[in-house]
Design a protein around this nucleic acid. Sequence first.
DNA 1: CGCTCTGTTGAAGAGGCTCAATATGGGTGG
DNA 2: CCACCCATATTGAGCCTCTTCAACAGAGCG
Lengths: 233, 233
Amino acid sequence: MKMHQQCAHHSNEAHQSCVSLVPIFNHLEDEQMNEIMETVQSVSFKKGEVIYHAGDDSDSLYIVHRGKIRIYRLSESGKEQLVRILNPGEFTGEYALFSESTHESYAEAMVDTNVCMVKQADLQQFLSKYPTISFKILTEFSKRLEQSETQTTRFATEKAETRIALFIADYVDNEEDSNEFTLPMSKKDLASYLGTTPETISRKLADLEKQGLIKQKTNKRIEVLDMDGLLLV
Amino acid sequence: MKMHQQCAHHSNEAHQSCVSLVPIFNHLEDEQMNEIMETVQSVSFKKGEVIYHAGDDSDSLYIVHRGKIRIYRLSESGKEQLVRILNPGEFTGEYALFSESTHESYAEAMVDTNVCMVKQADLQQFLSKYPTISFKILTEFSKRLEQSETQTTRFATEKAETRIALFIADYVDNEEDSNEFTLPMSKKDLASYLGTTPETISRKLADLEKQGLIKQKTNKRIEVLDMDGLLLV
DNA sequence: CGCTCTGTTGAAGAGGCTCAATATGGGTGG
DNA sequence: CCACCCATATTGAGCCTCTTCAACAGAGCG
């Protein structure tokens, strides 16, 4: 039940910004990027549309040009886990390009979204032609592997409250000049991402607030009052 | 507190089998493998010795030639999680080669072990010279990423009994012509790998046996009696 | 042959899930 | 722009799973 839809406009600007947006390509010469642009296909998805499905054949790399994509998995017992949210410049679909030929995860547009697709065959050509691309992808992979293993270890060894505290600590680290940040997703999704339930998220955030470690300014806006305390939870 | 020790013998045979052992190199021409062999350093570790430490600078790829290596992490709260056990032909140390410059995990020889080390600078040269190596590493990375995310999703969504059942099911799948297998690690390590305690492993295995799904023939030897049932736990 | 580490079993308690009721708020259509 | 509506979020109570602690059994190694 794929819902690929052609983008209304196929302007070069769209392609260009797409290719020049991603770290894995934007280090190339303009000429080389142009070459890649020509093979790239721009596709639009409406909010809620499915970009790919577990079990689908994978034959493209998807680069987010505009919008947000939710990547999630279903476990053996049918429960959903949010794996990652892709913002412009980030990509997915890569695993299947190199090993398995079908997707293991689901990708869904969270808002109206524009993606650029690079076909597997094209990508492989570029990889042998421009080895630096491989190096960029290797770098990206090793970063994700690192993150994924950190996440696994946290699930394996930390209780829910600690996982929530660590998530907040990680997140606020990325903000500069501020110990305040906006949750990048709903608390429902956060629960799914952290392997717990919305009820537990609610309760533990309330606990952290009661302990004086954070302050919930609005629904999605959190201020960290005591970073050191947060890391000791 | 690294404990690198030179291998007693630096024979070419050792190097050769090392390089020709790993999927990421063994597809090359003999001549090309010879070139790599010349840069490779063979190092031995005694049982229990630490190969690298979280926080160590990483500047080499480690290929297991003989022996077994235990890769584990410590969580923020100091608990240990077993990430992977490396057998001959498998490699580690790769993350830090491409992104962070320090290790996030610990590597320890489980038995007397022989590793081949490829220096970062050398590896990068080979990558640009022989792009197929990149492709092999990308394939390996995407496989590991896939496994790591599957593991994360299981931690996030399945209870301990299910994780144990799925581990057994996965493992026995690799055996051919048999629904019997030997645990590749102690139950203590298995508990650490599956994010639970040795007590829970003991109890749940006993439960699975009581349900008629498995049979524990000896300490480490398990026979699967009802695969379908196991997958429904 | 003994010592030590691994594995087993029991009991108690903590943490988190489920279910249910209620509150909130963002988005949509009028 | 407002009011309504439905998904999201909160809060409470009971229950279930798993951890913890402790005591004991067994296996492997020197």
